[in-house]
Amino acid sequence: MKLLIFVGLVGHVFCVGGFGSPGSIAASEIPDQVIEATKQELQKQNLVYTDTDLRAQASNVQRQVVAGYIYKYTLTLNTADGGKQECTFKIWYKEWEKFVQVQQSDCKPAGIVKRQLGGGHFLAGGVSAADCNSDKFQAPLQEAVRHVNMMSNSMFHMTPVQVTKCTSQVVAGAKYTMNVDFQQSETCMNDKDHMTSLLADCPPSNSATHTDHFQCTVVYAPWHKTQYETDCKMVQTQPKPKFGNDEHDLCHGGMFKDFQKKHQKFYSTEEGKVSQLIL
């Protein structure tokens, strides 16, 4: 039986009817075209990372001889929110045809420790207290501000004046929780130009006496199209509205709280609450 062989244009010998087994190589041997395809794939996944040299972040690099080469490797990337993502790639490259095809790409938070619980469920990272003023909380806070202003009935921007009780947790992505106090700005309208504006850009009115308190949860999943999933619930701490100066309630306080919770309504002044109730 004759063994047929042919010589590839790139100077490598391939055996007909079979391919070479994967072999480990240095990250420096990954072609520029494969690195460029990797960058494009990360852009498609909306993954915001801070590393400038992807080869320096590559590990477990393997190359398999096919009709060309298949490169397999893992990237550990530092993300813009201060976390890390671990991405695995499988890319087919044929130099003589200038052909590059991403066959597999998968990104997930790095360093997740899973503990098996009853019923087969897994718990990712534990909840950790976090510095509300840290850089990694700026983007989640802006998403919380966006969410609150989209719910607001006010003509003016609701600006965050205080952020407390911040926590972070590694889940399928990153989960941030925070308590945020809002007051109405006198300089910024509630429009698309100010939807995520913070205290420095939209200070509250000097005469502002009313504060709305929210508990916000923001989940950051960079591989999703929207990246952020946000939920803010108002914490009712203001006294119930009254008629005049006597002690007769305008309405049953519990009913009003139920209304706010069900419809996610809140008002920047006590007068706004009274007007809504009269209507």
Rank of each mutant, 00 (worst) to 15 (best):
F156H: 12
K39M: 05
V161L: 07
D53I: 02
L117Q: 14
H248V: 10
V102G: 07
E229R: 07
C216E: 03
A37C: 08
Y69D: 09
N153D: 08
C107K: 05
D212N: 13
G23Y: 15
F266A: 03
T226K: 12
P222H: 05
C251I: 09
G83L: 06
R115Q: 09
P140L: 04
Q33I: 10
G83I: 06
R63V: 09
N78H: 12
V219T: 04
T159P: 03
C15D: 09
Q142N: 13
V148G: 01
M178A: 06
L47V: 15
K44A: 07
V148A: 03
C87E: 02
Q57P: 00
G244P: 03
S105T: 07
Q104W: 12
I25V: 15
V274N: 01
Q103P: 04
K90F: 03
K114R: 13
A110W: 04
D181M: 12
H263M: 15
V100K: 07
D231G: 05
Q116I: 09
T217G: 03
Q276S: 07
H210P: 05
V219W: 01
S268K: 12
Y73G: 08
V48N: 13
V34F: 01
V16I: 11
N153Y: 01
A130K: 03
V34L: 04
K136Y: 09
K98Q: 15
W96L: 09
P109E: 11
K240M: 15
T159F: 00
P239W: 05
D201A: 10
T164I: 05
Q45P: 05
Q104P: 07
E41W: 00
G118Y: 14
V171P: 04
S275N: 10
G254M: 00
N46E: 10
N179R: 03
S134D: 10
K257P: 03
T74N: 12
F266R: 01
K114V: 15
L250A: 01
K114T: 08
G20H: 06
H224V: 10
A129K: 09
H121R: 14
E41Q: 08
Y69A: 04
P31G: 11
S205E: 14
V34W: 00
K261F: 12
C251E: 02
F182N: 01
P140C: 00
N78T: 12
E229K: 06
F182C: 00
S275F: 00
Q138G: 06
G82T: 04
Q104H: 15
H252F: 10
T164C: 05
V13C: 05
Q138C: 01
S28C: 08
G254C: 02
K225N: 11
P22T: 06
H12M: 02
A110L: 03
K90G: 11
H213K: 09
T237K: 11
A208K: 01
G17C: 13
S207P: 03
H224A: 14
S168A: 12
G83D: 04
